[in-house]
Amino acid sequence: MGAGHFPFMSNIRVLVAKLGLDGHDRGAKVIARALRDAGMEVVYTGLRQTPEMIVDAALQEDVQVIGLSILSGAHMAIVPRVLRLLHDKGMDDVAVVVGGIIPDEDAAELQKQGCAGVFQPGATLEEITGFVRSVARAR
């Protein structure tokens, strides 16, 4: 129990973060557990993370992948800020994967801006864990 680390054999490290004011954490928690059960090391930030907090945590925890969960509709305002901060800090090698209620045109735009992947409702845990593994290995 509690936030923190889940050390396993894998060397894939993932930060799962709730971005913005949105408190809906059911999806983020299910994904964090699924990644952990798939053998990755998962750090879950908890709620209400600003882009600055997320990028700092990614640096501290030395993760290859950041998974952002956002269901509030504010993704087009806040996700690009995370991408910009990562770029400013020379952390372009960290892959950003977004999950939530993201309409098709927004998903395309976020990928254009540098998100490695965008998962909409209905994506399976298997697809998501497989994707995270593949982008982490590519880093």
């Binding site: 004011l21 509030s72 509709g73 504010a74 806040i78």
Partner: peptide, 22 residues
């Protein structure tokens, strides 16, 4: 909306992008 639910005015930095969304 979320800023109102969290006790922030629309002009607060934490409200950026969230005003009137939910």
């Amino acid at each position: 909306d979320l800023p109102t639910l969290m006790g922030f005015d629309a002009s607060h930095p934490n409200s950026y992008g969230e005003v009137g969304k939910c």
